[in-house]
Computed example of a mutant assay.
Amino acid sequence: MATIFYARVSTVDQNIEHQQMQAAAAGFKIDRVVADHGVSGVSTLFADRPNGRRLFDMLRAGDTLLVRWVDRLGRNYSDVRDTIQEFMRRGVLIRTVINGLTFDGATKDPMQQAVRDALIGFLAAAAQANAEAIKEAQRGGIALAKAKQGETKYRGRKPSYTRGEFATVCDMLSQSAGIGSIAKVTGLSRQAIYRIKDDPAGAEAVLISWSDQPATAR
C-alpha cells in the first residue's frame, strides 16, 4: 500500500520543501510526492487542479493520502469536505502531518461516523475561515499601501521576507505553529515573524510598496 504526499503552493516563489520537511520530521515514510504549484485553494477546486485530479486515478483502496493539513486540499468548505468524503468512499486513508489526524471510511459504527464527519466539517470550515482572515489582511495591506503612496514616495526599509515566505508564515500561524518552528522552516528571524504575526496588514503593505503586486487568494 502506497503513501502519497500531496502538497500545494499558491505563489510562484513558494516551494514544497517545507511541507516535505515537516512530514519527514514527523516520521512519515513517503512513497511519492505529488504537488500543484501556483494554485489557489480558494478559487480552484481540488478536482480541477492538474495533480489533484490525477490523485483520483492514482490512489487505490488501502493507500494513504498524506497532507500537511486539510487546507492543502483546499480552502473552500464544501470542496474540502467533499474531497475527503470521496477518498474515504474509495477506501483511501487520509492523514495529516499536523496533529497526526487520520480519516478512515472503514468504520460502520454510526456514532464514530458522526464524530468523524463532524471533525471533517469543522476542519474544512476552519480552512475557509483562515483564508478569509488572510484576505482581509491583504485588503488592509493594499489600503494601507495606497494611503502611504499618497502621503510620500518613501517606501521604508525593504522587507526581509519574500512573498512566498510571507505566505508560508501566514499558513503556519493559522495552524498555531510556534515561532521557532516557523523560523526553522522559512529561515526568517523571529523578529520578522513576530512583525508579520502582530501586523499582517502592515507586513502586506510593505511587500506591496516594494513589489506593487498584491497577494493572490490562497
Rank of each mutant, 00 (worst) to 15 (best):
Q14A: 10
C170N: 13
T216G: 15
G74E: 07
V185G: 02
R32A: 09
V39E: 06
G202S: 06
I120D: 01
P214I: 05
A106M: 09
T44S: 08
F122A: 08
K153H: 12
T44V: 15
R32N: 08
Y194E: 14
V34W: 01
V34Q: 03
R163A: 13
D198P: 11
A133E: 13
N51W: 03
A205D: 07
H18Y: 12
A23Y: 04
A124C: 02
S43T: 15
N51F: 04
S209C: 13
S78P: 02
G41Q: 06
Q20K: 14
G105W: 01
T64I: 03
Q113L: 02
T162M: 07
L123K: 04
Q113G: 00
S189M: 05
T107R: 01
N99Y: 10
A24P: 07
R49L: 02
Q138R: 13
G38H: 01
A23P: 12
V206Y: 08
W210D: 08
S10V: 12
D63Q: 01
R72M: 12
L66A: 02
R60D: 10
F28D: 03
N99I: 13
T186V: 07
I142R: 06
P50F: 00
D109L: 00
K158V: 11
N76C: 08
V9R: 11
G150P: 06
A215K: 11
T152E: 12
V39A: 07
M58F: 05
L93T: 02
G141W: 04
L144P: 06
A7T: 13
V34R: 03
Q175V: 14
Q20H: 10
I182Y: 05
R90D: 03
V115I: 04
Q175S: 14
Q113C: 00
A143S: 11
S10L: 11
D57F: 03
D79S: 06
R163S: 12
S43A: 13
L123C: 04
S10G: 14
T44Y: 01
R155C: 10
V92F: 01
V39L: 06
D109K: 00
K108W: 00
R90Q: 05
D117K: 01
G38K: 03
Q19T: 10
A205R: 05
K153S: 15
S160H: 08
D82Q: 08
G27K: 02
G27L: 04
I98G: 04
L207V: 07
R155W: 04
I94F: 01
A114P: 00
Q113A: 00
K146E: 14
R54N: 09
L45K: 10
Q19E: 09
D79E: 05
L73I: 14
N15V: 10
F166Y: 14
R157M: 14
D36R: 04
D71H: 08
L144C: 06
D57T: 03
K29S: 15
T168Y: 06
F87S: 03
I30D: 01
F56P: 04
Q85M: 12
A177L: 15
A35V: 09
R81T: 10
G38T: 07
A118H: 00
D104H: 01
V185F: 10
T83N: 02
V33C: 07
I16T: 12
N130R: 15
A145L: 10
R90F: 01
A7L: 03
A127N: 09
R195E: 14
